[in-house]
Protein backbone atom coordinates (compact mmCIF):
# COMPACT_ATOMS: atom_id res chain seq x y z
CA UNK A 1 0.00 0.00 0.00
CA UNK A 2 2.69 2.34 0.99
CA UNK A 3 4.86 2.31 -2.06
CA UNK A 4 1.79 2.22 -4.16
CA UNK A 5 0.39 5.35 -2.71
CA UNK A 6 3.68 7.14 -2.98
CA UNK A 7 3.98 6.35 -6.61
CA UNK A 8 0.50 7.40 -7.28
CA UNK A 9 1.01 10.51 -5.32
CA UNK A 10 4.09 11.56 -7.18
CA UNK A 11 2.48 10.86 -10.48
CA UNK A 12 -0.38 12.89 -9.33
CA UNK A 13 1.85 15.66 -8.25
CA UNK A 14 3.59 16.45 -11.45
CA UNK A 15 0.99 18.37 -13.36
CA UNK A 16 -0.26 20.25 -10.35
CA UNK A 17 2.94 21.56 -8.96
CA UNK A 18 2.76 25.05 -10.35
CA UNK A 19 -0.67 25.95 -9.14
CA UNK A 20 -0.06 24.79 -5.67
CA UNK A 21 2.45 27.36 -4.58
CA UNK A 22 -0.16 29.79 -3.49
CA UNK A 23 -1.87 27.19 -1.46
CA UNK A 24 1.42 26.29 0.08
CA UNK A 25 1.96 29.78 1.32
CA UNK A 26 -1.40 29.89 2.91
CA UNK A 27 -0.78 26.61 4.46
CA UNK A 28 2.52 27.79 5.75
CA UNK A 29 0.69 30.46 7.67
CA UNK A 30 -1.81 28.05 8.99
CA UNK A 31 1.05 25.78 9.88
CA UNK A 32 2.47 28.59 11.96
CA UNK A 33 -0.76 28.98 13.83
CA UNK A 34 -1.09 25.31 14.26
CA UNK A 35 2.43 25.13 15.47
CA UNK A 36 1.65 27.59 18.20
CA UNK A 37 -1.13 25.41 19.41
CA UNK A 38 0.99 22.39 19.19
CA UNK A 39 3.71 24.04 21.15
CA UNK A 40 1.33 25.16 23.82
CA UNK A 41 0.10 21.65 24.11
CA UNK A 42 3.50 20.28 24.38
CA UNK A 43 4.44 22.88 26.88
CA UNK A 44 1.68 21.65 29.07
CA UNK A 45 2.80 18.12 28.79
CA UNK A 46 6.41 18.81 29.22
CA UNK A 47 6.12 21.28 32.05
CA UNK A 48 6.02 18.45 34.54
CA UNK A 49 9.07 16.83 33.07
CA UNK A 50 11.66 19.47 32.50
CA UNK A 51 12.34 23.18 32.66
CA UNK A 52 13.06 24.72 29.39
CA UNK A 53 13.62 28.17 28.07
CA UNK A 54 11.60 29.97 25.51
CA UNK A 55 14.45 30.46 23.17
CA UNK A 56 14.96 26.83 22.67
CA UNK A 57 11.37 26.44 21.94
CA UNK A 58 11.25 29.14 19.36
CA UNK A 59 14.22 27.71 17.58
CA UNK A 60 12.54 24.38 17.46
CA UNK A 61 9.43 26.02 16.28
CA UNK A 62 11.15 27.85 13.50
CA UNK A 63 12.71 24.67 12.37
CA UNK A 64 9.51 22.81 12.45
CA UNK A 65 7.72 25.41 10.49
CA UNK A 66 9.96 24.71 7.63
CA UNK A 67 9.18 21.11 7.82
CA UNK A 68 5.52 21.58 8.09
CA UNK A 69 5.65 23.89 5.22
CA UNK A 70 7.23 21.27 3.12
CA UNK A 71 5.18 18.45 4.32
CA UNK A 72 2.09 20.27 3.34
CA UNK A 73 3.17 20.47 -0.20
CA UNK A 74 3.59 16.76 -0.16
CA UNK A 75 0.61 15.93 1.81
CA UNK A 76 -1.71 17.24 -0.72
CA UNK A 77 -0.37 14.67 -3.05
CA UNK A 78 -1.32 11.94 -0.72
CA UNK A 79 -4.30 9.88 -1.52
CA UNK A 80 -6.57 10.05 1.40
CA UNK A 81 -8.44 7.44 3.28
CA UNK A 82 -6.77 4.32 4.48
CA UNK A 83 -3.41 5.99 4.35
CA UNK A 84 -4.17 7.98 7.45
CA UNK A 85 -5.00 5.03 9.54
CA UNK A 86 -1.90 3.42 8.31
CA UNK A 87 0.40 6.17 9.34
CA UNK A 88 -1.17 6.65 12.71
CA UNK A 89 -1.02 3.01 13.31
CA UNK A 90 2.60 3.12 12.43
CA UNK A 91 3.26 5.60 15.11
CA UNK A 92 1.68 3.48 17.71
CA UNK A 93 3.59 0.56 16.58
CA UNK A 94 6.74 2.55 16.63
CA UNK A 95 6.28 3.74 20.14
CA UNK A 96 5.36 0.34 21.30
CA UNK A 97 8.47 -1.11 19.94
CA UNK A 98 10.46 1.57 21.64
CA UNK A 99 8.91 0.83 24.93
CA UNK A 100 9.47 -2.82 24.55
CA UNK A 101 13.14 -2.44 24.13
CA UNK A 102 14.70 -2.83 27.51
CA UNK A 103 17.50 -1.42 29.53
CA UNK A 104 20.67 -1.87 27.50
CA UNK A 105 19.02 -0.36 24.52
CA UNK A 106 16.75 2.04 26.20
CA UNK A 107 18.93 5.04 25.90
CA UNK A 108 19.69 4.34 22.34
CA UNK A 109 16.12 3.93 21.49
CA UNK A 110 15.00 6.98 23.32
CA UNK A 111 17.62 8.97 21.53
CA UNK A 112 16.45 7.40 18.38
CA UNK A 113 12.97 8.31 19.21
CA UNK A 114 13.97 11.85 19.64
CA UNK A 115 15.57 11.67 16.27
CA UNK A 116 12.29 10.57 15.03
CA UNK A 117 10.45 13.26 16.81
CA UNK A 118 10.88 15.48 13.83
CA UNK A 119 9.40 12.88 11.63
CA UNK A 120 6.68 12.09 14.03
CA UNK A 121 5.55 15.62 14.24
CA UNK A 122 5.40 16.20 10.59
CA UNK A 123 3.73 12.94 10.08
CA UNK A 124 1.12 13.68 12.64
CA UNK A 125 0.32 16.90 10.91
CA UNK A 126 0.30 15.00 7.71
CA UNK A 127 -2.24 12.56 8.88
CA UNK A 128 -4.41 15.33 10.14
CA UNK A 129 -4.36 17.29 6.94
CA UNK A 130 -5.03 14.12 5.09
CA UNK A 131 -7.98 13.65 7.32
CA UNK A 132 -9.34 17.06 6.70
CA UNK A 133 -9.09 16.62 3.01
CA UNK A 134 -11.12 13.52 3.17
CA UNK A 135 -13.59 15.68 5.05
CA UNK A 136 -14.24 17.77 1.99
CA UNK A 137 -13.78 15.41 -0.83
CA UNK A 138 -14.54 18.06 -3.38
CA UNK A 139 -12.64 18.28 -6.58
CA UNK A 140 -10.48 21.21 -5.56
CA UNK A 141 -8.55 19.10 -3.16
CA UNK A 142 -5.29 19.81 -4.93
CA UNK A 143 -5.82 23.42 -5.80
CA UNK A 144 -5.13 26.63 -3.94
CA UNK A 145 -8.63 26.58 -2.53
CA UNK A 146 -7.81 25.67 1.02
CA UNK A 147 -9.98 27.58 3.37
CA UNK A 148 -10.42 28.44 6.98
CA UNK A 149 -12.38 25.31 7.56
CA UNK A 150 -9.47 23.28 6.45
CA UNK A 151 -7.13 25.15 8.71
CA UNK A 152 -9.37 24.65 11.66
CA UNK A 153 -9.64 21.02 10.96
CA UNK A 154 -5.96 20.79 10.77
CA UNK A 155 -5.50 22.59 14.00
CA UNK A 156 -7.98 20.43 15.82
CA UNK A 157 -6.67 17.25 14.39
CA UNK A 158 -3.18 18.31 15.23
CA UNK A 159 -4.00 19.20 18.75
CA UNK A 160 -5.51 15.78 19.05
CA UNK A 161 -2.44 14.21 17.62
CA UNK A 162 -0.31 16.20 19.99
CA UNK A 163 -2.46 15.00 22.83
CA UNK A 164 -2.11 11.49 21.78
CA UNK A 165 1.55 11.48 21.36
CA UNK A 166 2.82 12.19 24.84
CA UNK A 167 0.42 9.65 26.20
CA UNK A 168 1.97 7.05 24.06
CA UNK A 169 5.53 7.76 24.94
CA UNK A 170 7.09 7.09 28.25
CA UNK A 171 7.02 10.04 30.59
CA UNK A 172 10.79 10.44 30.59
CA UNK A 173 11.22 10.73 26.90
CA UNK A 174 9.49 14.01 26.08
CA UNK A 175 12.07 16.16 27.86
CA UNK A 176 14.67 14.55 25.73
CA UNK A 177 12.99 15.77 22.64
CA UNK A 178 13.99 19.27 23.38
CA UNK A 179 17.76 19.26 23.54
CA UNK A 180 18.12 16.99 20.61
CA UNK A 181 15.58 18.69 18.53
CA UNK A 182 17.48 21.82 19.22
CA UNK A 183 20.63 20.41 17.79
CA UNK A 184 18.76 19.31 14.76
CA UNK A 185 16.82 22.32 13.79
CA UNK A 186 19.02 25.38 13.97
CA UNK A 187 21.00 24.03 11.12
CA UNK A 188 17.92 23.65 9.08
CA UNK A 189 16.92 27.21 9.61
CA UNK A 190 20.41 28.43 9.00
CA UNK A 191 21.13 26.63 5.81
CA UNK A 192 17.83 27.38 4.36
CA UNK A 193 17.34 26.70 0.73
CA UNK A 194 18.33 23.15 0.19
CA UNK A 195 16.54 20.60 2.23
CA UNK A 196 18.60 17.91 0.70
CA UNK A 197 21.98 18.91 1.96
CA UNK A 198 21.20 19.22 5.58
CA UNK A 199 19.27 16.10 6.13
CA UNK A 200 22.40 14.24 6.70
CA UNK A 201 24.38 16.73 8.77
CA UNK A 202 21.74 17.16 11.46
CA UNK A 203 21.80 13.49 12.11
CA UNK A 204 25.49 13.31 12.24
CA UNK A 205 25.23 16.07 14.77
CA UNK A 206 22.94 14.06 16.84
CA UNK A 207 25.09 11.02 16.83
CA UNK A 208 28.12 12.53 18.52
CA UNK A 209 25.76 13.74 21.17
CA UNK A 210 24.63 10.25 21.79
CA UNK A 211 28.18 9.04 21.93
CA UNK A 212 28.94 11.81 24.35
CA UNK A 213 26.73 9.96 26.71
CA UNK A 214 28.85 6.92 26.17
CA UNK A 215 26.23 5.31 24.00
CA UNK A 216 27.41 5.39 20.45
CA UNK A 217 25.48 3.60 17.82
CA UNK A 218 26.71 0.15 17.45
CA UNK A 219 27.68 -0.53 13.87
CA UNK A 220 25.24 -3.39 13.69
CA UNK A 221 22.54 -1.73 15.68
CA UNK A 222 19.31 -2.32 13.90
CA UNK A 223 17.97 0.92 15.27
CA UNK A 224 20.80 2.89 13.96
CA UNK A 225 19.53 5.22 11.29
CA UNK A 226 21.16 3.36 8.51
CA UNK A 227 18.47 4.62 6.32
CA UNK A 228 19.74 8.13 6.73
CA UNK A 229 22.70 7.89 4.45
CA UNK A 230 20.40 6.27 2.02
CA UNK A 231 18.17 9.19 2.32
CA UNK A 232 20.97 11.57 1.60
CA UNK A 233 21.80 9.34 -1.27
CA UNK A 234 18.57 9.76 -3.00
CA UNK A 235 18.93 13.44 -2.97
CA UNK A 236 22.37 14.75 -2.34
CA UNK A 237 25.71 14.39 -3.93
CA UNK A 238 27.93 11.86 -2.32
CA UNK A 239 30.62 14.43 -1.63
CA UNK A 240 28.53 16.45 0.74
CA UNK A 241 28.84 13.47 2.94
CA UNK A 242 32.40 12.62 2.28
CA UNK A 243 33.60 16.09 2.88
CA UNK A 244 33.33 15.91 6.58
CA UNK A 245 34.85 12.49 6.61
CA UNK A 246 38.04 13.83 5.23
CA UNK A 247 38.41 15.95 8.34
CA UNK A 248 38.74 12.91 10.55
CA UNK A 249 41.91 10.87 10.54
CA UNK A 250 40.34 7.54 9.76
CA UNK A 251 37.28 8.24 7.70
CA UNK A 252 35.55 4.92 8.09
CA UNK A 253 35.80 4.90 11.84
CA UNK A 254 34.14 8.25 12.08
CA UNK A 255 31.60 7.62 14.76
CA UNK A 256 30.31 4.67 12.81
CA UNK A 257 28.46 6.87 10.38
CA UNK A 258 27.64 4.95 7.26
CA UNK A 259 28.89 6.69 4.13
CA UNK A 260 26.30 7.40 1.51
CA UNK A 261 28.36 6.11 -1.35
CA UNK A 262 30.88 3.37 -1.85
CA UNK A 263 34.37 4.83 -1.36
CA UNK A 264 35.70 2.59 -4.08
CA UNK A 265 33.34 3.00 -6.99
CA UNK A 266 31.60 6.14 -5.67
CA UNK A 267 28.23 4.62 -6.45
CA UNK A 268 25.45 5.07 -3.94
CA UNK A 269 25.12 2.42 -1.30
CA UNK A 270 21.75 0.73 -1.18
CA UNK A 271 20.18 -0.75 1.89
CA UNK A 272 21.94 -4.09 1.53
CA UNK A 273 25.26 -2.34 1.18
CA UNK A 274 24.81 -0.13 4.19
CA UNK A 275 24.09 -3.11 6.38
CA UNK A 276 27.15 -4.86 5.06
CA UNK A 277 30.17 -4.64 7.30
CA UNK A 278 32.89 -6.87 5.88
CA UNK A 279 35.76 -5.84 8.14
CA UNK A 280 36.19 -5.13 11.80
CA UNK A 281 37.93 -1.87 11.01
CA UNK A 282 34.55 -0.54 10.00
CA UNK A 283 35.41 0.18 6.39
CA UNK A 284 32.28 -0.12 4.32
CA UNK A 285 32.01 -0.68 0.63
CA UNK A 286 29.46 -1.97 -1.79
CA UNK A 287 29.04 -5.68 -2.36
CA UNK A 288 30.19 -5.37 -5.92
CA UNK A 289 33.54 -3.86 -4.99
CA UNK A 290 33.90 -6.29 -2.11
CA UNK A 291 33.45 -9.21 -4.48
CA UNK A 292 35.92 -7.73 -6.86
CA UNK A 293 38.48 -7.40 -4.09
CA UNK A 294 37.84 -10.92 -2.87
CA UNK A 295 38.60 -12.21 -6.34
CA UNK A 296 42.05 -10.69 -6.37
CA UNK A 297 43.67 -8.90 -3.51
CA UNK A 298 41.47 -10.04 -0.68
CA UNK A 299 42.55 -7.21 1.60
CA UNK A 300 40.34 -4.61 3.19
CA UNK A 301 40.93 -1.25 1.48
CA UNK A 302 40.50 0.44 4.84
CA UNK A 303 43.13 -1.34 6.91
CA UNK A 304 44.96 -3.46 4.29
CA UNK A 305 44.45 -6.56 6.37
CA UNK A 306 43.17 -9.58 4.56
CA UNK A 307 39.47 -10.18 4.91
CA UNK A 308 39.66 -13.04 7.32
CA UNK A 309 36.26 -14.48 7.74
CA UNK A 310 32.84 -14.32 6.29
CA UNK A 311 31.57 -10.77 6.43
CA UNK A 312 29.38 -9.80 9.33
CA UNK A 313 25.97 -9.07 8.02
CA UNK A 314 24.21 -6.59 10.19
CA UNK A 315 21.04 -8.13 11.46
CA UNK A 316 17.77 -6.51 10.95
CA UNK A 317 15.16 -7.47 13.43
CA UNK A 318 11.50 -7.38 12.67
CA UNK A 319 11.08 -4.17 14.54
CA UNK A 320 14.21 -2.71 13.12
CA UNK A 321 13.05 -3.67 9.70
CA UNK A 322 9.78 -1.94 10.02
CA UNK A 323 11.47 1.06 11.53
CA UNK A 324 14.16 1.47 9.00
CA UNK A 325 11.71 0.94 6.28
CA UNK A 326 9.27 3.38 7.63
CA UNK A 327 11.65 6.17 8.32
CA UNK A 328 12.98 6.72 4.84
CA UNK A 329 9.49 6.77 3.55
CA UNK A 330 8.23 9.43 5.85
CA UNK A 331 11.40 11.42 5.47
CA UNK A 332 11.36 11.28 1.75
CA UNK A 333 7.85 12.53 1.88
CA UNK A 334 9.16 15.55 3.67
CA UNK A 335 12.02 16.16 1.38
CA UNK A 336 10.41 15.55 -1.91
CA UNK A 337 9.04 19.02 -2.39
Amino acid sequence: MVSDSITRASVHAVPNNGGRDLGKKKRARSAKLKQCKLDVRREQWLSQGAMKNKEQNSVVKAGKERNNNRSFGNLEMRPRGGQIDGSIHHHHHHHDSDMESNSPNSLTSSVLESNYSETTFTSSSSSSSGGCCSGNITEDEEGGGDDGCLDDWEAVADALAADEKPKNTCPESPPEHEPIAQTVFPQETAIGSDQVEHLNPPYSRVIPKASGNGHAWRPDDAFRPQSLPNLANQLSLPNSNRKHYSCGGVPWAYNGVVPSSCPICYEDLDFTDTSFLPCLCGFRLCLFCHNRIMEEDGRCPGCRKPYEHEPVEAETSVHGGSLTFRLPRSCSMITRS
Binding site: P238, N239, R242, I264, C265, Y266, E267
Partner: peptide
Protein backbone atom coordinates in the same frame (compact mmCIF):
# COMPACT_ATOMS: atom_id res chain seq x y z
CA UNK B 1 38.96 1.94 -16.03
CA UNK B 2 36.15 3.12 -13.80
CA UNK B 3 35.74 6.46 -15.51
CA UNK B 4 32.80 7.46 -13.38
CA UNK B 5 35.04 7.32 -10.37
CA UNK B 6 37.89 9.10 -12.14
CA UNK B 7 35.52 11.83 -13.22
CA UNK B 8 34.34 12.34 -9.67
CA UNK B 9 37.88 12.30 -8.39
CA UNK B 10 38.84 15.04 -10.80
CA UNK B 11 35.86 17.12 -9.76
CA UNK B 12 36.65 16.69 -6.12
CA UNK B 13 40.28 17.47 -6.65
CA UNK B 14 39.56 20.64 -8.53
CA UNK B 15 37.19 21.69 -5.80
CA UNK B 16 39.88 22.24 -3.20
Amino acid sequence: VDFARVQKELQECSRD
